[in-house]
Nucleic acid binder design. Structure first.
Length: 460
RNA sequence: GGUACGGUGGCAGAACGGUCAUGCGUGGGCCUGCAAAGCCUAUACAAGGGGGUUCGACUCCCUCUCGUACCUCCA
């Protein structure tokens, strides 16, 4: 497949059988929000697609668990950094498991790689790219002549535009911390003095450890391009002397009603909250509704649209289960939609077009079902393809037990008899009862089909 | 100020140098005991402004403009 590479600003072919991906995860000082969810869902779909296409994927996603914000939070709670980060790592997994995000192969933490980080800084020091000063150990940007290539920034412009107070102990305002001196917890001994790692160095040390010096894809949110990824690249390539990631892949931001999500404006949408309101499938549809590289705006209207689409997909899923009898003629359509689904994802993970193919198939199947032309052969052609697409998109229909099926079928039979006797109010009572169980009835000319509806709180 | 990405019908959103997907929405009708689901049909002057290249541009180039993000907290 082809993926847009931030560094070369062009699409790059990815045809390796083994794809190693390093995804910059979250700093665990608070609950995850919808922006984190988008990035992680995009990479989840990338991973699922690559695996379905036969590639062996190794996905590593870090947790930044040592950071000023974590320390501040711990201080505010009279707690310890480890307690705070531990709590938010737990909440991360609760949220993202529920979002149906597959687990990465590993989730390395900065605090568990202090030895590797120190070794990394030592190597940089030996190469003359790091120096120790009053406040910490810094990376000398001057040691990396290509500094700025990833974010397309010119060094002299960066200096004049710097709006943060300059640390006088640095040789150059652009130099960034590899190690910050501190005696307070959390801190570790190092050859330069007690302290803790800077932000960027963990990703260099851990990506190299788990994926090697040169791997296929390095990704994260667009806001990480500068300074995080720029700095990572400078460190890593200086250290290894080899090119770092083959492809840099960045996911666009999520805005809320057209505005940036910010604590100060109080418009941060936590994953927990949107999950409670909309459930995993609709959030995934939302996050995949536009191209990953572009920003998307979180609005009630768009979520409602995704809800309507999800209802169609549910309908289709159950229509296929119930379908039987004569029919045929769907197989051509299935092949076509399947091909366009794959072609869309192959071209820079165009999930919007892939969803068009998915819902195109859903629409055709639902139409056939309503007309009574959806036969057993059709269902056998459509269903595996529908499930394959849902698998790649990470959409899932809750399991339904055999007992529930029997109970519902029994009630439907009762209702049918009442309807034949024209006892409509009694029949409607049964329909209401079934509806209370989260099951909707579709009366077709040729019989009644039931659909289990996912409960969406925002719907009411 | 700099950099990046974008500005396509009411909304969302693709592709493509020549025919401007698709979905949602909206109007009307059909089906139904009723509803839901589904269908049929209609609907939209669609491309931020201005230049240029071209037989022809939404698509390429220039310019202006607007939006969003980033410029050492940020997914």
């Amino acid at each position: 497949m082809d993926i847009q590479d931030t560094l070369s600003n062009s699409k790059k072919r990815l045809d390796a059988q083994k794809v190693r991906i390093y995804l910059c995860g979250v700093t665990v000082y608070d609950d995850s929000h919808i922006g984190h969810a988008r990035t992680i869902i995009v990479f989840d779909v990338l991973r699922r697609y690559l695996e379905s296409a036969g590639a062996k994927v190794e996905l590593v996603q870090n947790f930044t668990d040592v950071d000023d914000k974590i320390i501040d939070r711990a201080r505010a709670e009279s707690s310890a950094a480890g307690i705070v980060s531990g709590r938010y790592i737990e909440s991360y997994f609760r949220d993202f498991d529920e979002l149906n995000v597959m687990r990465a192969d590993s989730y390395p933490k900065a605090t568990e790689h202090i030895g590797e980080i120190i070794d990394y800084i030592s190597t940089l020091e030996k190469k003359g790219a790091a120096y120790s000063s009053a406040n910490g150990v810094y990376f000398a940007v001057s040691a990396f002549s290509r500094y700025g290539v990833l974010s397309k920034k010119k060094i002299d412009e960066l200096q004049s535009g710097a709006r943060i107070e300059v640390d006088e102990s640095k040789k150059d305002p652009l130099d960034f911390a590899l190690w910050k001196f501190s005696k307070d917890d959390p801190s570790w001994d190092s050859p330069w003095g007690r302290g803790r790692p800077g932000w960027h160095i963990e990703c260099s040390a851990m990506s190299t450890k788990y994926l090697g010096e040169n791997f296929e894809i390095h990704g994260g949110g667009r806001d990480l391009i500068f300074p995080h990824h720029e700095n990572e690249m400078a460190q890593t390539e200086t250290c290894t002397g080899a090119p770092f990631a083959k492809i840099w892949m960045h996911v666009g931001m999520v805005t809320i009603n057209g505005e940036k999500m910010a604590k100060s404006t109080g418009n941060v949408r936590s994953v927990r909250r949107v999950l409670d309101e909309w459930g995993p499938n609709i959030i995934r549809l939302f996050c995949l509704s536009g191209h990953y590289s572009k920003p998307i705006d979180y609005t009630e209207d768009l979520l409602c649209e995704d809800l309507a689409k999800w209802r169609q997909a549910e309908t289709c899923y159950f229509e296929l289960i119930h379908a039987g009898g004569p029919g045929g003629g769907a197989s051509g359509m299935v092949k076509e939609m399947s091909a366009s689904f794959d072609a869309a994802l192959r071209d820079d993970l165009n999930t919007h077009l892939a969803l068009s193919a998915f819902f195109g198939m859903v629409k055709v199947a639902n139409k056939m079902a309503a007309e009574g032309t959806l036969g057993g052969d059709d269902a056998r052609a459509i269903r595996p393809e529908l499930e394959r697409m849902m698998g790649i998109l990470g959409l899932s229909i809750p399991e339904i037990t055999q007992e529930e099926i029997q109970e519902i079928d029994g009630m439907i039979t009762q209702r049918e008899e009442l309807r034949k006797e024209k006892k409509f109010s009694d029949a409607d009572r049964i329909r209401d009862e079934i509806s209370g169980m989260g099951v909707e009835l579709l009366d077709h000319g040729h019989g009644t089909v039931w659909v289990r509806r996912e409960k969406i709180r925002a719907e009411n």
